[in-house]
């Protein structure tokens, strides 16, 4: 599905929204900023910015109360992985579902 041409209020509908990774449904950060192409008429959103990574607008697969993106290769949860390796994985049971 492409979002091309959809008219949105970028500040209301994009900024500070929750990002969801389409692959596993995991929460993947917030939309910290948007990149605009001001040369286009009307200006269009070309990318979202989260955790200092640019996510091309083409990667957006769904826009609802959260923004679902194809995050393949972007490594959006690299900070979580770092904490996981440094702390959480050292505690027994880190990989088990709760009972």
């Amino acid at each position: 599905m492409t979002m091309a041409g959809r008219v949105l209020h970028a500040q209301l509908h994009l900024l500070d929204r929750q990002l969801i990774d389409q692959a596993d449904g995991h929460l993947a950060g917030k939309v910290d900023d948007v990149v605009l192409d001001l040369d286009a008429d009307p200006p269009v959103v070309t990318a979202l910015v989260s955790a200092r990574r640019e996510i091309s607008a083409r990667r957006i697969t769904d826009l609802g109360t959260a923004v679902t993106v194809d995050a393949e290769g972007l490594d959006l949860d690299r900070y979580d992985d770092r904490v996981e390796r440094a702390v959480i994985d050292k505690i027994p049971g880190a990989g088990h579902a709760a009972e």
């Binding site: 993947a28 950060g29 904490v83 996981e84 959480i88 505690i91 880190a94």
Partner: peptide
């Protein structure tokens, strides 16, 4: 915007 919750394994919500 971090992954949170008890519905995932602890390692998936490390922070």
């Amino acid at each position: 915007g971090w992954q949170w919750g008890k519905f995932v394994r602890p390692r998936e919500a490390s922070r």
